[in-house]
């Protein structure tokens, strides 16, 4: 197990390391630099001052050297200050991270709770009306632009019906449970609708494939009931490819969070990345981007563990080779 962890973790660390360099370089390519921002804030700064400041901050050095300095500081826990929030980057990130994990966790769980049963039911009755309905809904979910869906949900539920808030988080801890929960309904619904279709289709395809196997025919032949065949014999095998594909989707989940959080003014990571890129908050943008990458990698890693746990043919030992 320990060896599996090591074997599986080092590529992730490599991706993270490479990503930190790429992200650092890309953010260096964004318009302006910290000194430019100071000049806008204080017109009295002369060009000599600017040159002196650039030297002081090391902005005149080559990118690799600047990255090295940043990395050393970062490894010591110093990620710099956020310009937008006027506090250390990590302190600005923490509440956003909690908000995003809440939003993504809820919609992820909800999407699976809808998609897996829907996919299984569609697979057991292929080409029935129900199957077509699931398929049509899945296609619609995959194809709908989620920012538009969010806007339309706002129009219907917040404007026309007036039953749900259009955005924000409310005041946590005040009022009843519903007072807090109602701010989550529309964002979670948007995210869920966007991902449920893909998952249902994968589940359906995997289940149909599994139900064609010989051992399923054997199970039926020895008299196992249809429910038992599907849930006991087929499900575990059918889940294996589904887990892999859903794991690869973690990155997409983050993209979805960015869109929904922007539409519904939900103060999470996605919105933070957008705001920090737009507001030239270089330190914050960099760390937020890396944190999003880290979360995606952790998700992929957990899926790998689940993969091995689901498939007895693969052991942790075998993966190592």
């Amino acid at each position: 197990m320990a060896q599996f962890l090591i074997h599986r973790l080092w590529p992730s660390l490599l991706v993270l390391g490479l990503m930190s360099f790429v992200a650092y370089s890309l953010i260096g390519l964004m318009p302006g630099d910290p000194v430019d921002l100071m000049i806008t804030a204080d017109p009295k700064i002369t060009s000599e001052d600017a040159a002196r400041l650039r030297q002081l901050y090391g902005l005149d050095k080559p990118i690799v050297e600047r990255y090295g300095n940043w990395l050393m500081a970062a490894l010591n826990g110093d990620f710099g200050y956020s310009r937008l929030f006027a506090k250390p980057v990590m302190e600005a990130l923490k509440p956003a991270l909690a908000n995003t994990v809440l939003l993504l966790g809820l919609s992820f769980a909800l999407a699976l709770a809808i998609a897996l049963p829907a996919g299984i039911i569609a697979a057991t009755r292929p080409y029935s009306k129900l199957d077509y309905a699931v398929n049509a809904f899945a296609f619609a979910g995959i194809s709908v632009p989620s920012f538009w869906l969010g806007l339309m949900l706002i129009v219907v539920f917040a404007v026309l019906l007036g039953v749900l808030p259009a955005g924000g988080t409310g005041e946590l801890g005040k009022g009843g449970v519903w007072e807090n929960l109602k701010y989550l309904v529309l964002p979670v619904a948007t995210l869920t609708i966007a991902s449920v279709g893909g998952h249902a289709r994968y589940m359906r395809a995997a289940m149909i494939e599994t139900l064609r196997q010989d051992y399923i025919r054997t199970a039926r032949a020895i008299g196992a009931g249809e429910t038992r065949v599907v849930l006991h014999h087929a499900l575990r095998n059918a889940l294996i490819p589904v887990v892999t594909i859903i794991a690869l989707d973690f990155g997409n989940l983050f993209s979805g969070a960015l869109i929904t959080e922007t539409i519904f003014s939900w103060p999470g990571m996605g919105r933070l990345i957008y705001d920090s890129v737009m507001g030239n908050d270089f330190n914050l943008a960099l760390v937020a981007l890396l944190l999003a990458t880290l979360l995606t990698l952790v998700g992929n890693f957990l899926a790998d563990v689940a993969y091995v746990a689901l498939d007895p043919r693969i052991s942790f030992r075998e993966v190592e080779r």
């Binding site: 997409n252 983050f254 943008a285 999003a292």
Partner: peptide, 17 residues
Amino acid sequence: GVIALPLLPLLIVLAAI
């Protein structure tokens, strides 16, 4: 590695270059 990246946040930085 590329697949593992959070696509949209990265695209936003790319688009801001």
